[in-house]
Design a protein around this nucleic acid. Sequence first.
DNA 1: CCATGTGTACTATATCGAATAGTACACACA
DNA 2: TGTGTGTACTATTCGATATAGTACACATGG
Lengths: 128, 128
Amino acid sequence: MFSIDIMSRQPVYEQLIAQIEHFVLIGILKSNDKIPSVRSLAVDLSINPNTIQKAYSELDRRGIIYSVPGRGCFVSEEANNILSQFKREKLSELEDLVFELALANISKEELIDCINNAYKKKEGMEND
Amino acid sequence: MFSIDIMSRQPVYEQLIAQIEHFVLIGILKSNDKIPSVRSLAVDLSINPNTIQKAYSELDRRGIIYSVPGRGCFVSEEANNILSQFKREKLSELEDLVFELALANISKEELIDCINNAYKKKEGMEND
DNA sequence: CCATGTGTACTATATCGAATAGTACACACA
DNA sequence: TGTGTGTACTATTCGATATAGTACACATGG
């Protein structure tokens, strides 16, 4: 389920956070689903339990998951709403990126094709 | 001319690279323009000369600048072409970002507005 | 010629974040 | 009661970043 790249410049715990959030967004993880335990995931990924714990703590802090001592960690009810709001704040990031591409003489049509592709990808996914 | 954020997670030398490349793209720096010397820029920014040198080495490696021992560093003839090609390779990055935003139920129209804004920003700049 | 400014190379050191290692405690459940 | 769970510590290792200092070769202008 998870794929971690040890060689990446992005820290392992951030990769974990991003992947879990992605799984929530695409619906693989739903509200109240249990996510793997700290220790089992550490064994699966050959990663130190503390690193998993660090990712889970941050996801808890963001309200994406909640943890029940002795039972495990679960996806929260509000996870999707929180993530949607989170992503919306990235619109300015998109505008910066597009501006850079525009400066590099990439045509507006090319970028709009790019957007259409992304939306087709989403719709294709929903039909599964 | 340069603004460095010491507190940023992005390393100083990468900030320098990004800013010089940006200045080339928007036309503030043109072919064969001299860029500040390692030592003077180090004084201006209160940064260690080695850090500037690291950025310049990388820009040289990328073909954005060329250096003449004893004289200084200059923007290369091919800088703009290289950067344009470089940015084009970021189209996949754009598609990934748009896909994430699409999953967060941000409408296609909103994203197209975003693109239009970026292009307006570019055109507005060219009229100066 | 010579002082100054330039790029370049090198070693050493300090600092910080990420990751590992190990231990410990409280809780839930079968 | 044993096992699995989250959580909280401390100590340590490791790598990238940045600093500090020195040195050399070159170009330019007085």
